[in-house]
């Protein structure tokens, strides 16, 4: 029981971290909390379902196209909706909140109320260390999720674009003085944030089929993750995700299954009381 709760906590935690990464990136660079993050996640799930299931593409090609499409959609949203809100974090919050409701209802209209699931990559389950059975698709999703996270951090550390992102999220004015076109950077990083949501979506849709409103609890967890780790801190976001996953599963195993989602909010409030800037946040303000 304990072994499973911990393993599952880490796997689910990695999933939370992956979903939260996009939120964290956009918060760090643009100071915008994208309330519709969960809906981008769902959109990618739908895209990969349509490309793979309805149009008969190879599942992996379908996933790739889906993430690209969500990236483009994200750029479009940034251009049309988010751009006039720079500097007013609450205005962007209100706009993305309305956007999330609009998208949920648009999905309901277009894709219908039933869950949609792209094909599995693998099937069956594996007996882990003789302790418990674990679904193969979940293990594959875990591997893919870790790969995306590693790639993302490598890009952040090693590429010129990554350096630009880090510079801007540390000091926007300084970055502008150094000749970074922040307008274009904003557009790209918002798209990238959405693409990260999309990556999480295509990786997870075979495990958790998508429905029009399934993005809401996921986005909520992502926000908690970001606050827990410290606004805009990518490292904090990963640690936050793992903590949430563990707390939730240990709580469900030993305390109460009905209250499993409350545990993470309690942790959040405790952290805010003790260390308001989050685990890895810069303590300003």
């Amino acid at each position: 029981m304990l072994a499973l709760a911990i393993t599952n906590g880490l796997v689910i935690g990695m999933i939370y971290a992956l979903t939260a990464l996009g939120v964290s990136l956009v918060v760090g660079i643009m100071n915008v909390v994208n309330f519709a993050h969960g809906e981008f996640y769902i959109l990618a799930g739908y895209f990969s379902y349509i490309f793979a299931h309805t149009m008969g593409f190879d599942p992996f090609a379908a996933m790739f196209i889906a993430v690209c499409a969500v990236f483009l959609f994200g750029v479009l949203v940034e251009y049309t909706i988010i751009r006039p809100t720079y500097g007013d974090e609450l205005y962007s919050l209100i706009l993305t909140f309305i956007l999330s409701i609009v998208l949920q209802n648009a999905y309901l209209l277009i894709f219908g109320p039933y869950p949609n699931k792209p094909p599995n990559w693998v099937s069956g389950a594996t007996n882990v260390f003789g302790l418990f059975y674990y679904g193969n698709q979940r293990l594959a999703a875990l591997a893919a999720g870790v790969a995306v996270i590693v790639l993302f951090f490598a890009m952040l550390k090693m590429t010129w674009f990554g350096r630009m992102i880090r510079a801007t999220s540390q000091d926007r004015e300084m970055a502008e003085l150094n000749g970074i076109n922040t307008k274009r950077l904003n557009m790209l990083s918002f798209g990238l944030g959405c693409a990260l949501a999309g990556a999480a979506g295509v990786i997870l849709a075979p495990v958790f089929p998508v429905t029009p409103t399934a993005g809401v609890p996921l986005a909520l967890t992502a926000f908690v993750c970001v606050v827990l780790g410290g606004m805009g801190s990518m490292r904090g976001c990963i640690v936050g995700g793992l903590i949430l996953g563990l707390v939730e599963n240990l709580g469900a195993a030993y305390v109460s299954t009905g209250y499993k989602h409350v545990f993470m909010f309690i942790i959040l409030i405790l952290v805010l009381l003790v260390r308001p800037s989050g685990l890895f946040g810069r303590s300003e303000a």
């Binding site: 499973l4 089929p209 609890p217 599963n249 299954t257 499993k260």
Partner: peptide, 30 residues
């Protein structure tokens, strides 16, 4: 179970430990 829960591994392992012959599930939809 919490209605919005997608991951039920921990719950299901609790059930498995009980070793039932039948699981009567009153969970709707997805």
């Amino acid at each position: 179970t919490e209605r919005t829960s997608q991951d039920l591994y921990t719950e299901l392992n609790k059930i498995k430990a009980f070793n039932p012959d039948v699981v009567l599930a009153f969970v709707y939809g997805t």
